[in-house]
Simulated scan of single mutants.
Amino acid sequence: LYQFTTFKHICLSHCRSPLAFVAQHWRDGRVGALKMGLRHGLYCFGCCWALFAVLVAAGVMSIAWMLLL
């Protein structure tokens, strides 16, 4: 069900286009870069958390299954 939510599509739009994300959310300095990285990471996690969970579970059981997925 999560695959069809608006939240997933919002996260995908930011995660698939990192250059556009940087252009929209640019922050100067090291702290700004850290904030941008964390924000972009949250968008990517928002769209792929289910895949991450499946890959971690499969990887714990078998590296071959994780690679196959």
Rank of each mutant, 00 (worst) to 15 (best):
T6Y: 12
H9S: 15
G29L: 04
H25Q: 12
L38D: 01
A64F: 05
W26L: 12
L51W: 12
I63T: 14
C11P: 04
V56F: 11
A33E: 08
S17T: 11
I10D: 10
L51K: 14
G29D: 05
R27D: 03
H9N: 15
L12A: 09
Q24R: 13
G29K: 06
F45R: 06
H14Y: 06
C44G: 08
L67T: 02
I63A: 12
L42Q: 05
S17C: 07
A53V: 05
W49N: 01
L38F: 02
L38Q: 04
T6D: 13
F4T: 14
T6L: 15
V54G: 06
R30M: 08
L19G: 07
Y2P: 01
H9F: 15
W65T: 03
V60L: 10
L34H: 05
V22Q: 03
G41Y: 00
W65C: 07
L34Y: 06
F21Y: 04
R39T: 07
C47G: 05
L12V: 07
A50Y: 11
H25F: 12
L1M: 07
W65K: 07
R27H: 03
V60G: 06
L38A: 01
A58T: 07
F21S: 02
M66E: 14
T5N: 06
A20K: 12
V56D: 14
F21E: 02
G37H: 04
C11E: 01
M66K: 03
F7N: 01
A50E: 14
H40D: 07
A20D: 08
T5D: 09
W26E: 07
H40Q: 10
L42C: 03
A53M: 06
Q24H: 07
Q24V: 03
L67W: 02
A20E: 05
Y2D: 04
V54I: 15
C15P: 08
A58Q: 14
C15I: 02
C44R: 03
H14S: 11
S13K: 13
S62R: 02
C11A: 04
L69N: 04
I63W: 13
P18G: 01
L42H: 01
F4Y: 13
G59N: 03
R39K: 05
R16M: 12
A50D: 14
Y2F: 15
F4V: 08
R30F: 10
F4E: 15
H25Y: 15
A23F: 09
G29C: 06
H40K: 05
G32Q: 00
S62K: 01
M66N: 07
Q24K: 10
M66I: 04
R30S: 11
W49C: 02
V60M: 08
I63C: 10
H14A: 11
M36D: 02
Q3C: 09
D28T: 13
C15L: 03
M61W: 14
D28V: 13
A50G: 08
L69M: 08
L34P: 09
G59M: 04
G59D: 02
L38C: 02
W65R: 08
A53L: 10
C48F: 12
A50V: 13
T5R: 11
R27K: 03
G46Q: 06
L68N: 06
A23N: 12
D28P: 12
A33S: 09
K35V: 14
